[in-house]
Design a protein around this nucleic acid. Structure first.
Lengths: 326, 326
DNA sequence: TTGTACGCGTTATCAC
DNA sequence: GTGATAACGCGTACAA
């Protein structure tokens, strides 16, 4: 590895001059600039990020903590995050918690030990307070959840989304609407459930029924098979996310239950594939890519702006009606 | 931030002893061990990974260079990579090249400056030789491409896969089979194209027709609309990957062209959604998750085993027949 | 405008 | 068994 010292020697200057040239800091003569740059490119010099971070306390890297990149919603968040981060010179460390709080905590520690300049946290179940304690002075942005006044967040009103989805099914004339929720301690799942309950209770004579899922395709699939084989099959299912919604559709089709005639389905997220399945899936839109990039923008401000104040970037959920419900 | 010095002070030992305890290296008395561990947990000490990497020359991190996490195939590769990496204490730096060689090169440099211990490279277009030059002594594993004797690779026979796909369509009685290829300089896309051509040429009187796509949904969509609106519409399309295959299906449906009756379609990758769309998509299976985890296993060996020899982990492509072709 | 010298937090080599 | 101390590569006061 060639170091800054090698470049200095080759250019005939001291390391500090080389450093100044390469970082554009302080005064440097034109000649120094030229000779240093020549030497650097000749030797293919790449600054050692570790040494740099050690002294500057900035690593130009951020952590991305999500449950699962295999879920297209989070994949898109990841892409938005990485694109925006890359555009301002940051690298992204990817962490999949697999929906498990202990793993979330583990990754938080790992990210701290790597001295990331900030963390984007999407779909996590860990409490914000705990997050603040563990992360100490490392800025973070909560995605997909409402932050308190103490934390930045890119927030989408999941309760409103759940309400919209359920209301839509009610308007379609459904009277036996089951909600397959996300895992119990997921903030966004909880909020969607709350919206579902609120909508159901507005309608007299209709009972809510909730089955706990886990945001994975399989849980939507199995819950639906159970429901449809049961004594009182529903006429509509609101799934806590699109992956489970696709599971619902597959299960219904496997049992010869036609959608939307006998069963209407609504998902959540509007992953691209929701539009391609058949019947296409009605869902609540979340601008996943934008959420990721917006989070990084907030993070960048939190990192470099000393008088940064926690903000909440709000997004309105939007119902996207497709064939699975009409 | 609490440092090793703080722990040493609190425990009443020197930094060297603390280091030995925490790394389990060298001799330490039972008492030292206990007191140091107490102090460390009391102060919530986390070793500074930067400083550690600076001296040890190991960062416990690897780079993952892929075209696009939004593509489910690469999302799964990423998940496999991160899981396996995490299980052996490694972090993953995510890099999306967006299919652009210049961005691949840029990321290679960034990863080098971050001193990653190794790099997993999937779906890249950059030549292996260039890669070796740029990466110098940083080990890497090529995924999705055959490596030379000088490079590790997790290799799936893309040419054979392309052959299988085309042969299947020929066996279905199709005589006007178009291939929508990946971008021209993608090694895996090239190989699939080669397999297509080989299969077509085996059949007398059948002409190959190739349209260059770019592995994205839209390119499959637009190519298909153009083809179906043209003078000599094909009776089958072999798409270079599933995303384009889904685009083909959507385009055909938008034009009222029924699949598989008037048009048969085969994709490549077997992303999970290929099974959920309607008609479900016939495709060539690639065990994406496993490819990622296998790559990390090879990398781990390359990193820690001094007498590591480049190996090629081979996977056989497998035809998965679904409704889009039967 | 440039160079010297120190410190960032660790690990590793040596004396003790 | 333990503790100084010298690296690791870089940024930056401070002096020149």
């Amino acid at each position: 590895m060639t170091t800054i010292g090698d470049v200095a020697k080759a250019a005939g200057f001291s390391v500090s001059t080389v450093s100044r040239v390469l970082n554009g800091s302080g005064y440097v003569s034109e000649e120094a600039k030229v000779r240093v740059e020549q030497a650097a490119s000749l030797l293919q010099y790449t600054p050692n990020g570790l040494a740099r971070g050690l002294v500057s306390k900035r690593t130009l890297s951020i952590g991305l903590l999500i449950p699962d990149v295999s879920n297209p919603f989070f994949a898109d968040v990841a892409r938005g995050t990485e694109d925006e981060a890359g555009s301002i010179g940051y690298s992204v460390i990817l962490c999949n918690s697999d929906w498990q709080v202990p793993r979330e905590k583990m990754y938080i520690n790992i990210l701290r030990s790597r001295w990331v300049d900030g963390v984007v946290i999407a779909g996590a179940r860990i409490e914000e307070k705990r997050l603040r304690e563990d992360l100490r002075d490392v800025p973070f942005v909560l995605v997909d959840r409402r932050g308190s006044a103490l934390a930045d967040s890119v927030w989408i009103d999941n309760e409103e989304g759940g309400f919209l989805a359920t209301q839509h099914l009610l308007e379609c004339g459904c009277r036996n609407i089951v909600h397959i929720s996300g895992a119990g301690d997921s903030p966004s799942g909880q909020a969607r459930l709350k919206g579902y309950l609120r909508a159901i209770r507005l309608e007299p004579g209709i009972q809510p029924l909730v089955i706990e899922g886990d945001f994975r395709f399989e849980s939507g699939y199995h819950a639906t098979r159970m429901l449809l084989n049961g004594p009182n099959p529903p006429d509509a299912i609101f799934a806590g996310n699109d992956l489970m919604g696709l599971g619902v559709i597959q299960a219904a089709q496997s049992l010869g239950c036609s959608i939307p005639d006998r069963l209407k389905v609504v998902g959540y997220d509007n992953i691209s594939f929701a539009a391609y399945v058949s019947p296409s899936l009605t869902t609540i839109e979340q601008p996943s890519y934008t959420m990721g990039s917006a989070a990084v923008k907030m993070l960048a401000d939190a990192i470099s702006n000393p008088q940064h104040r926690p903000t909440s970037y709000e997004i309105q959920p939007k119902l996207v009606v497709r064939k699975s419900s009409s």
